[in-house]
């Protein structure tokens, strides 16, 4: 099994991209995050669906006590999410710049899974000689296993 067999080619996010555009790219490819690149095309951060939602509408007191929540609170306490205002915001303030873990086409699958586990992430970026190729996700690895073993 090679990572190149499971990599999902995607577009990249650049400064000024709207959250709505980033969401669309994530949804189109079924990935949880995308690389954030500067004008030279160098990866300087990552856009993460989880981090964006967390920053915009999931304060710690809410997520920590999620198991206690009833069904009447969410829509009223986060109107900017419900009315779609967040889609018009630029992604820049929500970019994660720390721990941009990457793998290469020669990395074993177990390494990719290990890094995802370490950083509590469902995806990792694949770079070939510093050039962005795409995203490797757990889902894609599982899909490959099924195909490889004709299960």
């Amino acid at each position: 099994m090679k990572l190149m067999d499971v990599v999902i080619p995607t577009g990249v996010i650049s400064p000024g991209t709207l959250i709505g555009e980033a969401f669309r790219e994530c949804v189109k490819h079924g990935v949880g995050g995308l690389p954030f690149v500067n004008a030279e095309g160098e990866i300087i951060g990552r856009f993460s669906l989880r981090h964006t939602f967390k920053s915009l509408c999931l304060p710690q007191d809410l997520s920590r006590h999620a198991h206690l929540l009833g069904d009447k609170i969410c829509s009223e306490s986060t109107p900017e999410v419900v009315n779609g205002d967040i889609l018009e915001l630029a992604v820049d303030p929500f970019i994660i710049t720390a721990h941009i873990a990457t793998v290469t086409p020669h990395s074993p699958v177990i390494k990719a899974l290990s890094i995802m586990e370490k950083f509590n992430s469902g995806y990792i970026f694949l770079l070939d000689d510093e050039r962005y190729v795409g995203v490797v996700t757990r889902m894609a690895v599982a899909n490959l296993l099924l195909k490889y073993h004709k299960f």
Partner: peptide, 12 residues
Amino acid sequence: APITVLIARIIE
């Protein structure tokens, strides 16, 4: 403190 904030958030 966090559960207090949550209660305040819910009852606005």
